[in-house]
Amino acid sequence: MTRLPPALRAAALLLALAPAAAGPARAAIEDGYDPAAAPVPSTWYVPADPAAQQADRAYVAGMRPHHAGALSMSRDYLADPGAGSPLLQALARGIIRNQQFEIGLLDEVARNLDRPPLRLDLGLLALRLQPAATEGMAQLQRFLRSPMPGPLTAATGPVTARDVQFAKAMILHHQAAVTMARGYLGDPAARNGFLALLNTDIVTDQTQEITLMRRVVAAYPGDAAAVAVPPGMVHGMEGMQRGGDPRAGQAGPGRDGAPDPQAGHRHGHPH
Rank of each mutant, 00 (worst) to 15 (best):
R9M: 11
S42Q: 13
G232W: 06
V216D: 02
V178P: 01
Y59K: 02
G193V: 00
G254S: 02
G252M: 09
L197V: 00
A219M: 06
D31Q: 11
A38S: 14
P6Y: 00
P158E: 08
A83W: 06
A225S: 11
L195R: 03
M233I: 06
R182M: 05
T204G: 12
A161E: 14
N98P: 07
D34Y: 04
P81D: 09
P5G: 05
G69Q: 10
G94W: 02
M170G: 05
Q53D: 14
P246V: 10
G104L: 15
R266A: 13
L120I: 08
R115E: 15
A70I: 04
A28Y: 02
T211V: 13
R9Y: 01
A154R: 03
L15D: 09
Y220H: 09
L129Y: 04
P41L: 08
Q54Y: 00
P5I: 00
T200H: 09
D114F: 14
A154D: 03
L14K: 11
G249I: 00
A218S: 11
A176H: 02
R115K: 15
V60Y: 09
R247C: 02
A20C: 03
V203S: 00
V178K: 01
M148A: 14
H67S: 11
G244W: 02
P117W: 09
L105A: 11
P149S: 10
P86K: 10
T2K: 12
R26C: 03
T156S: 13
T179Y: 01
Q175M: 06
A27I: 00
Q141G: 13
Q130Y: 08
Y77P: 09
T43N: 08
V229A: 05
G193N: 02
L88A: 13
Q139Y: 04
D223F: 05
V234M: 10
E102P: 03
D256W: 02
G69C: 13
E209A: 12
R191V: 01
D31M: 06
H67E: 14
P50T: 07
P253C: 02
P116W: 10
A25S: 13
L152Q: 14
P253A: 04
G232R: 15
P116E: 12
G123H: 12
Q130S: 11
I171C: 09
T43S: 07
R266M: 00
T200G: 13
H67K: 13
T2S: 09
Y33L: 08
Y77M: 12
V60R: 05
M63Y: 06
I95G: 05
R142D: 13
M213G: 03
G257H: 05
V60I: 14
N199A: 02
A90M: 13
P5Q: 02
P39F: 04
G268R: 08
H269D: 11
A83H: 09
G236M: 02
G193A: 03
A177V: 01
E30A: 12
L185E: 01
L124G: 15
R142K: 15
A18S: 12
V217Q: 03
S42G: 14
